[in-house]
Design a protein around this nucleic acid. Structure first.
Length: 819
DNA sequence: AGCACGCCGACT
DNA sequence: GTCGGCGTGCTC
């Protein structure tokens, strides 16, 4: 009986696709192997993942068949595939999208299509062709084989199609494996030939052979190389040339004589540098707790996530390392998830100190080739520990023994910018449960939901809170409102901030100023007609960046050159309204003319090296003030940073999100603990606000529990998570009026059931995004209800809606458990 | 989502 | 004969 393989294709489509399996392939085919399949009208070749294989009684002749099997052994195991399936179901996306996210780019082979002549070209009578057709033929005569894509750009597609139909030209599709091993050249002595040449009858030692060879050449450089190679055979060419200060031609000459040979080897691209000694150590009390903690975790029998709620700051890494050592000694692998690798240099240093070759790093700045190398090393268990961001969860661990999620409260774990819109923390918990392995959520400020689960005994809670409360004068709230009305404030800064910066200057310390907004100004307003300059794709003002003199959209990435005249009325009287870090930096220069002021945000630090250089320079040139965005948390461990000033906190508190309070509280607590304010009476945090009586400031001085108890009551009252599950739903259309008209139909269909849980329709703050207008719904599914049925209902409502609005460009976006 | 296909109008 | 635009329908 024939066999059918169901495969996952890297496309948006929800279903899996069936292909016929040839008799000779069936023995080689397994679930979890990559295959190449033809797909679509053109039979374009795609890399697909084998999902299921089964026998069938039906005729498979109507099916296309598998073109090629890529892998000799499966690169994904059945548990991982089951995990992919769960993600696709729960987060409402296609398996293909999960696959694209889970696999490194370079494991998905690409195709390249060239245009070539057919044999018909031999007997072609060019007079039968039109002038346009002849142009292409002449062009191809010179350039064939030529990229199909490029040809379509340079000539009309219509004419190319005609030539294809006449079978004068044809398409030639080739698979390209984008992975390129990193090759380096190494130099070896060619003993075989050397001995043949210089061994006269009696036995000679290697050094005698070389000295004979040296006598046989007049070139000093060649002699140097031979001597050097005797000691350092197999050295990398680059170093040989550098160390001996010679050129490539010397080696070429030696190679010609067959005294040496060169060989290319694939080498690791990833080379961590061994840094100095680690500087974090535990005291005896901490160590004792650590051992007890580990023992408890190892002894526990029933599976449940462990929440590690602590105030250890950077010291936590030593805790982790102790635990990791135990797990590794048991022969298992470890996944250490962090929200953002930029903030974890210290972790990597410490981990590398203990685990060196067993440690792998996986984050957004690792390039595609390196990803494949890491993938492979995890697979063969050469890497025992991976420290990485979101996508590291999909690495092919063969023997995972622990997942540790650091900073579990961090919202970065939820991905919303592309599918799958998953929360890696929640997915990691699910995955750990599937594998029945321990998972630890580490945090200095648990998220409300996580802490709730510990209170419900769904998660195990381990406390380690030893820090004293911060002193009253260490966290100072300064009222912008009264300061401004009394005209005491100096530009942006209140008196208190201003004086404090001077105090730091006298101590030769750096003041750090935080503002959560990049660029110079968030909008350009015309003073003549009031026109605000908007993004062409989104319904939002463009942000002005002074350094690059560009206008950028923070939502879609669109950018254009700065404008000097209003696009509406032509006036040149434009003002840059609002504040970004660039503008603050400029104003600080006026307020503190003799200070050294620097700016730190992601727009001026694209690479890791730039950031490292910046940090190194800080020590050298006596910086007085640094203004920056989130990146400033990098600076909090510095000895000469005692003061942080937070500007415009109110902005953060007022973002339209039910978690705004939680995020702001987390952020401030993060600063307090990273700066280690409780243990350092000289350190302080100043917060500028117009709402000095806001309850968030009270909570900062008290313990976590008081904050939690108030927040959880609010959540319950408003039926927000953890008392409900949220689904955010968006209907999109490129035309606003079409959307507005159609939404009534959709609304009726959607509200035909579960109406009391549905909020909306509402217009979001940014009405148009990436050329699509949006209307949103928020669905609050009560905790105990089955969300699957609600999802089915939504899908049905949308399908019925599409049927009514047949053929129009409506899109549905679903975001499960939004940020 | 892509993308090909087909129909149409416009231009030469 | 050539070319681009846009609506429609399909992908094993």
């Amino acid at each position: 009986m024939p066999y059918i393989a169901e495969v996952i294709l890297p496309v948006y489509l929800k279903n899996v696709f069936q292909y016929a399996v040839n008799d000779e392939d069936i023995v080689l085919l397994n679930i979890g192997k990559r295959v190449v399949v033809p797909f679509g009208k053109n039979n374009k070749l795609y890399t697909a993942m084998v999902y299921k294989i089964y026998e069938t009684q039906e005729n498979t002749q109507t099916l296309k068949s598998i073109h090629e099997i890529i892998d000799e052994i499966p690169i994904i195991n059945p548990i991982q595939l089951a995990f992919w399936t769960w993600i696709a179901d729960y987060y409402w996306c296609s398996l293909g999208e999960v696959m694209l996210f889970a696999l490194p780019n370079h494991l998905i082979l690409h195709t390249h299509t060239n245009v070539i002549f057919t044999e018909a070209i031999q007997s072609l009578d060019i007079t039968t062709l039109t002038t346009k057709e002849n142009e292409i033929i002449h062009f191809l005569a010179k350039h064939a084989p030529y990229s199909f894509k490029k040809l379509k750009n340079e000539f009309s597609e219509y004419t190319i199609k005609k030539l294809l139909k006449k079978k004068i030209i044809q398409l030639d599709t080739q698979l390209i494996n984008p992975f390129k091993p990193h090759l380096k050249t190494f130099i070896f002595l060619d003993w075989q030939n050397l001995i043949n040449q210089f061994q006269n009858n009696q036995q000679v030692t290697p050094s005698e052979v070389i000295s004979l060879a040296i006598q046989n050449t007049k070139s000093e450089n060649q002699q140097k190389v031979l001597l050097y190679l005797l000691q350092n055979e197999g050295i990398e060419k680059k170093y040989l040339l550098h160390n001996l200060q010679i050129s490539d031609s010397v080696l070429k000459a030696l190679e010609k004589k067959k005294w040496i040979y060169q060989e290319k080897h694939a080498v690791d691209r990833i080379q961590l540098k061994k840094k100095g000694k680690q500087n974090v150590e535990l005291n005896s009390h901490e160590l004792e707790f650590c051992n007890q903690f580990i023992q408890e975790l190892l002894n526990s029998t029933s599976w449940s996530p462990t929440v590690f709620f602590h105030d250890l700051g950077m010291k936590r890494i030593v805790f982790f390392i102790e635990y990791f050592k135990k797990i590794i000694s048991m022969g298992k692998q470890i996944l250490f998830l962090v929200p953002e690798i930029a903030f974890t240099d210290k972790f990597v240093e410490e981990l590398y100190h203990y685990f060196t070759e067993e440690l792998g790093i996986y984050h957004s700045r690792i390039n595609d080739n390196e990803r494949v190398e890491i993938w492979y090393k995890v697979f063969i268990k050469e890497y025992k520990i991976i420290i990485g961001v979101r996508s590291a969860l999909f690495l092919p661990f063969t023997d995972l023994g622990l997942i540790l999620v650091d900073e579990e409260q961090d919202a970065n774990y939820k991905q919303e910018e592309k599918n799958p819109k998953l929360n890696i923390k929640d997915a990691a918990i699910y995955y750990a449960k599937m594998l029945n392995i321990p998972i630890i959520l580490s945090t200095q400020t648990p998220s409300i939901e996580t802490y709730y689960h510990t209170q419900q005994h769904k998660y195990r809670l381990v406390n380690y809170l030893r820090s004293p409360a911060p002193k009253e004068n260490q966290i100072q709230i300064t009222d912008l409102k009264t300061q401004i009305s009394l005209r005491q404030s100096i530009g942006l800064l209140t008196d208190l901030s201003y004086k404090s910066i001077y105090e730091q200057k006298l101590k030769n310390h750096i003041s750090v100023i935080f503002l959560n907004r990049k660029g110079y100004a968030p909008r350009i307003v015309c003073n003549t007609c009031g026109h605000v300059h908007f993004c062409i794709h989104c319904d939002i003002a463009l942000t002005y960046y002074k350094q690059s003199n560009k206008l950028k959209c923070h939502y879609c990435g669109y950018q254009e050159d700065n404008i000097y005249f209003c696009k509406n009325c032509g006036s040149n009287d434009l003002s840059f309204e609002g504040f970004g870090t660039e503008k603050i930096e400029e104003q600080l220069h006026t307020i503190f003319p003799n200070f050294v002021i620097r700016r730190l945000d992601s727009s001026n630090f694209k690479t890791k090296k730039q950031l490292a250089d910046f940090l190194n320079e800080l020590h050298k040139n006596n910086t007085d003030i640094i203004v920056g965005t989130q990146l400033i948390t990098k600076l909090l461990h510095f000895d000469n940073v005692d003061l942080i000033i937070v500007l415009m906190l109110d902005m953060m508190l007022h973002i339209p999100n039910f978690r705004a309070f939680e995020y702001t509280y987390q952020f401030l607590r993060h600063i307090i603990y990273e700066l280690d304010i409780p243990h350092n009476p000289s350190k302080k945090l100043i917060i500028q606000t117009r709402m000095p009586n806001h309850k968030i400031f009270e909570f900062l001085m008290k313990d976590y529990a008081s904050y939690y108890h108030e927040q959880i009551l609010l959540r319950e009252e408003l039926r927000y998570p953890p008392f409900s599950r949220l689904i955010e739903l968006e209907i999109l259309h490129p035309k606003l009026d079409v959307l507005n008209q159609a939404i009534h139909h959709f609304n009726k269909l959607l509200r035909s059931a579960y109406s009391e849980w549905i909020l909306g329709p509402t217009y979001p703050y940014v009405a148009k995004l990436k050329n699509y207008y949006r209307i949103q719904y928020l669905i609050k599914i009560p905790k105990k209800q089955n969300s699957l049925k609600v999802k089915e209902h939504i899908q049905k409502a949308f399908n019925d809606f599409l049927h009514i609005e047949r053929g129009s460009h409506f899109r549905l976006n679903i975001n499960v458990d939004p940020k």
